[in-house]
Structure formats: C-alpha cells, structure tokens
C-alpha cells in the first residue's frame, strides 16, 4: 500500500521535468528502476513460478552436454570425458536406428492423419444438432473417455483384445471365428490399436476447441445464406469450415511440430515382446537405454536428436503456414 502512494507521488514530481518541450526518453536503467519501484511486488508473485521453471526446465537443458560426453555419475559433469558426436554416430549406425525411426514416424503420422480430422467432423456434426438436451448428452459422453488415465486405457485394450476371453474374442465368436489371433502379438496391428484407441479417447475432447470457433461465427451469415437458398451442406461448406480454418491451421502446426513426440506412456504400456519390432519408438528406447541399462550419455544423445528434429519440424511447418495462409504461431 505504502509503495503505491510513494510511486505515484514521485511520478507527479518528475513529470514536469521530463515533460518540457521534447520528452526525453528515459534510459533503460531509469525505466527499470521505476518499474521495480512501482511493480516490485508483482515480481514477487512471479518468483515461485520462475524458480520452478528455472530449476526443472532450464537446468536439465544444461544437462544436454552429457550427450557429447561419456558421462559417468561417479565423475560428474565436469570431469567426464568428451567424445564429441560419438554417441550420435553410434545411434545412427546401430541396427535399431532404422526400425525405431520408422516406428516413431509411422505411428505419429498415422495418428495425425486419422486423429486430426475426427474432432473437426464431430464438431460440425454437433453444431448441426438443434436439440439442446441431446447435444449436451452427446458432448458429455464423447468427452468422457478423455478423463480415463493412460494406464486404464492400456488395461482396457489389453483385456478387451485378449484372444481367449476378451470382448474382441466374443465378437469374433459371433462371426464364427473359433480361434482369433492375438492383436497385441501382431506387430502390423500395433499402430492401428494405438491410433484408433487414441481416436476413441480424444476425439470428443478435441472437438471443444472447434465448437468454440463455430460458436463465434456471426449468426447473420447463416441468415443471409438461408435467404440465398443455401442448404445445410452449403452452410457447412461455405460458412462453418472457413470459420474454423484459423483454428484448424494452428492445431495442424502444433500437431505437426509434435510429430516425433509419440506419447511414451501408452506405447510403453502396450509393448510386449511379440510386438516390439513395431512398438519400439524413440522415447521407449531412451527410457530403456538410459534408465534400465544406465547408458546416460547415449540415451541423452538419442533424446536430443528427437528434440532437435521436433524443433526443426515445428519451425518448418510454422514458416510454410505463415507464407501460405498468414496464420502462424508467432
């Protein structure tokens, strides 16, 4: 309270001096000093957040240097031997490199292609429903799977797809298949299981953002379209979709930027020895090499490779989008 009054009194005193004919621009130091006098307590509110980010997000970035070392916990950051790119070349030349990269990319591109349009379609559909109560029920039910934890989702997949006792087996029996194959034991089915369960879980929730965009569209556009004789399809085609376009582009950029970030948790939980050839992805590999086999430097290098590719992808997609559609993240 006290510093507020003091600051405003000082302002009044300094104003005539600074405000002669030419307003002298205050130096950075002066402006900062004034800002701290006036808003110093605001910075106090920021301290916990800044500390948490500095310690838990920035300090590990410094740890990236171990990717270029032969790091041993006993010798520490400072005394570990420098090996330049050896960890990277070892990864690129390992026989698993091709498989892991292929698995990571195929799972995530499949996710993007199958998962990206679904919320848009659902939002368009929900937007057409005029019966408010029914719409509400539909929304509540389709959002629900989003709140199920990854562990439970993976557990549901495992128990449903059990070839002897699961729901999948029952359905197969209905169609006269006595001994269905085990889908989780089939490498070629792994990405479909991963992606389709993801579509089931997240489509509803992801549609909210598009519904928000649709609700922001001017009602008079629809009225004008009706007068001009447009039908339901025309309105979707010429009003709804263009109205959602900026949101669609932003989300596409974000998704494309995260293409190398296949969710670790679900893949890890669904992995077994039979499907490993299709389910080993970069993050599970980092986990195994680093924390199970204790090869800190090697797995930090693999992780860094992943981060760098992601970063490049994000920047590329954002740049393309800025040129093509004038919508971009920054």
């Amino acid at each position: 309270m006290r510093d507020g009054t003091k600051a405003s009194r000082k302002d009044r005193q300094s104003a005539p001096q600074g405000g002669e004919y030419v307003i002298r621009k205050k130096t950075l130091g002066e402006r900062l000093a004034r800002d701290f006098r006036q808003n110093g307590t605001l910075y106090l509110l920021l301290i916990p957040a800044v500390l948490v980010v500095a310690i838990f997000s920035y300090v590990p970035m410094y740890g990236i240097i171990i990717a270029f070392q032969n790091f041993k916990p006993s010798t520490g950051f400072w005394n570990s031997e420098w090996v330049c790119m050896a960890n990277f070349t070892r990864f690129f030349s390992s026989h698993q490199f091709g498989t892991i990269l292929k698995n990571t990319l195929s799972i995530s591109i499949y996710s993007l292609v199958a998962g990206y349009p679904m919320p848009i379609i659902l939002a368009l559909l929900l937007n057409q429903i005029r019966h408010e109560k029914y719409k509400k029920v539909l929304q509540t039910i389709t959002y629900m799977p989003h709140f199920i934890s990854t562990v439970v989702i993976a557990g549901m997949i495992v128990v449903f797809l059990n070839p002897n006792t699961g729901l999948y087996a029952q359905i197969a029996h209905l169609f006269g298949v006595a001994k269905p194959v085990d889908p989780l034991g089939q490498p070629k089915l792994f990405s479909s299981i991963y992606v389709l369960s993801g579509v089931w879980q997240h489509t509803g929730w992801d549609s909210i953002i598009y519904l928000a965009a649709l609700s922001g569209i001017d009602v008079t556009l629809y009225e004008a379209a009706t007068v001009d004789g447009a039908n339901r399809w025309d309105k979707i085609r010429y009003i709804d979709i263009p109205g959602m376009a900026p949101t669609m582009i932003i989300l596409l950029i974000m998704n494309a930027g995260g293409i190398m970030n296949v969710g670790f948790e679900k893949v890890f939980l669904l992995q077994n020895n039979l499907n490993l050839s299709a389910s080993e992805i970069i993050s599970t590999y980092v986990y195994k090499m680093g924390l199970i086999h204790q090869q800190y430097s090697f797995s930090a290098a693999v992780g860094l490779f992943n981060t760098v590719i992601n970063f490049i992808l994000l920047i590329t997609v954002n740049t393309i989008s800025r040129h093509v559609s004038e919508t971009s993240l920054w």
Binding site: L46, V50, V59, M61, I66, L291, S299, G303, N310, F311
Partner: peptide, 26 residues
C-alpha cells in the same frame, strides 16, 4: 516492464527441453 522477457523465458521450455535423462540426473 519485463513481461515480454519473462514470457519468452516461460515459452522456450514448451518447445525445447533437456529430456528424460538429464531430468532424471537432476
């Protein structure tokens, strides 16, 4: 005044991070 600087400070970790192993060591 430092709003923009702090925004950048907060935004960078959204796109770039140290990864699993350095975090574990920390």
């Amino acid at each position: 005044m430092l709003r923009n600087g702090i925004t950048i400070f907060f935004t960078i970790p959204m796109f770039f991070g140290g990864g699993m192993i350095p975090t574990y060591i920390l």
